[in-house]
Simulated scan of single mutants.
Amino acid sequence: MTAAAMRRWGWIHKWSSLVCTLFMLLLCLTGLPLIFSHEIDHLAGDGIHAPEMPADTPRASLDAVAQAAVAHYPSLVPLYFFAGEDDPNLWYVKLDTRVDTDESASRLVLVDARTAEVLGEPQFDSGFMSVMYRLHVDMYAGLPGKLFLGAMGLLLVTAIVSGVVLYAPFMRKLDFGTVRRQRATRTRWLDLHNLLGIVTVVWALVVGFTGVVNTWAELIFKAWQAEQVAALQAGATHTVLAPDAAGAAAADGSVQRAMERALLAAPGMKVDMIAFPGTLRSTPTHHAVLLSGDTPLTARLTQALLVDADNGEVLEASGRPWYVTVLQLSEPLHFGDYGGLPMKALWALLDLITIVVLGSGLYLWWRRGGQEAKP
């Protein structure tokens, strides 16, 4: 590589790093507890949990769960069921004054899936983990904050790529892993910065890229959801499961029947969400059922079905586009949710190393007085 090319890559690496480093440090520091969010919540005793019962305790009908939620708020009607992410024995029920509401004044209650007993109203916007999450996701700035952090993530990817380009000619002078301890402090930190950076380069690219993708998720999911609902409402669907002999008598508006029909039409899936007829996510005559896979890898891959509230016919619109699949897989990969606690521990270690890389990069620039670094 020519000296001029090295200077250009050095300029790209320096300024892409400097612009994004403080925000990347914020994301690394807030992301560290988020990796263990489930474990921290469990140890802290935060949230509402289902009481201990025998594993074979039968589950209550979803219609009974809906009735319990309405009894808790007699003036409201149910809009959605959401399955408990960490506890299959819980249902979140969202209610509002009418089904065609904009949901701005909705209420959320937590109901035991076995006893149909209301356990309370969850609070998702308070506590230490909530602060960490908001700082990590949007810095309390909503969608503009997400897109800004996405731009910083793109700068991080640029800094990583340019750093790899600069690393290759630099390492021709030294053996891999060399830290020149007998040299000046700044030189030792330069060697350590380069070593830790190249060791974590693949992980940093994966986490950086998936983080950027996650910042676009809200926009893409809303567009895809609107497209799917419009297709379903316009009748651009195909029948997955035709009405059976029981037909209308068995359905009769039952949300339990809608769930059973959806699971029969999509074996190997589990229910994430059920929308009542007339809500924003369904049609006036159908329950909308959102299903996902039942393994760690497929749990983020969703499938939307409509179930006729009268006869139980199950309909599906067009399949999930590739870019939505990428989005759905990016979040668990970003936080290391695929491999249980060992993978989370590895993610945390790499996060700590990345903090050292970012901090050492700032130190090297500051000690050089803002001039170009020379190995």
Results as ranks from 00 to 15, higher is better:
94 K>D: 07
79 L>M: 14
66 A>Y: 07
87 D>H: 08
109 V>P: 06
41 D>N: 08
62 L>V: 09
73 Y>E: 09
97 T>V: 14
120 G>L: 10
65 V>H: 00
93 V>S: 04
70 V>E: 08
95 L>Y: 02
104 S>H: 14
46 D>K: 07
67 Q>R: 13
43 L>W: 10
96 D>M: 06
59 R>K: 13
88 P>A: 13
67 Q>A: 10
99 V>E: 13
54 P>N: 14
114 R>V: 00
114 R>D: 00
46 D>G: 10
52 E>H: 11
63 D>K: 05
116 A>M: 04
88 P>N: 15
95 L>C: 04
60 A>F: 03
80 Y>T: 02
108 L>F: 14
40 I>F: 08
52 E>F: 07
66 A>E: 12
120 G>W: 07
83 A>K: 03
42 H>T: 10
110 L>Y: 04
62 L>C: 03
45 G>D: 05
105 A>I: 06
92 Y>I: 01
76 L>K: 07
82 F>P: 00
70 V>T: 15
99 V>D: 05
96 D>L: 06
73 Y>D: 15
41 D>P: 01
76 L>V: 04
114 R>H: 05
57 T>S: 05
77 V>Q: 14
40 I>D: 01
100 D>Y: 10
83 A>T: 03
97 T>E: 12
51 P>I: 10
78 P>Q: 07
42 H>P: 01
80 Y>H: 15
70 V>P: 01
89 N>W: 02
108 L>P: 06
40 I>G: 10
41 D>W: 09
85 E>Q: 15
71 A>Q: 15
49 H>L: 08
114 R>Y: 01
68 A>R: 00
109 V>D: 14
62 L>S: 04
89 N>S: 08
46 D>H: 11
76 L>N: 04
74 P>H: 15
95 L>P: 00
98 R>V: 08
61 S>T: 03
109 V>I: 15
121 E>L: 12
47 G>D: 00
84 G>H: 00
78 P>S: 05
78 P>D: 05
51 P>G: 13
119 L>P: 08
120 G>V: 07
54 P>H: 07
94 K>E: 12
119 L>W: 15
94 K>T: 12
120 G>N: 09
114 R>K: 07
81 F>W: 03
102 D>K: 11
83 A>D: 02
84 G>L: 02
46 D>E: 11
87 D>G: 04
93 V>G: 03
74 P>E: 07
71 A>N: 15
82 F>M: 02
75 S>N: 09
91 W>E: 00
108 L>I: 15
85 E>M: 12
109 V>T: 13
84 G>I: 00
98 R>S: 12
90 L>M: 07
107 R>I: 13
99 V>G: 04
43 L>H: 05
61 S>H: 01
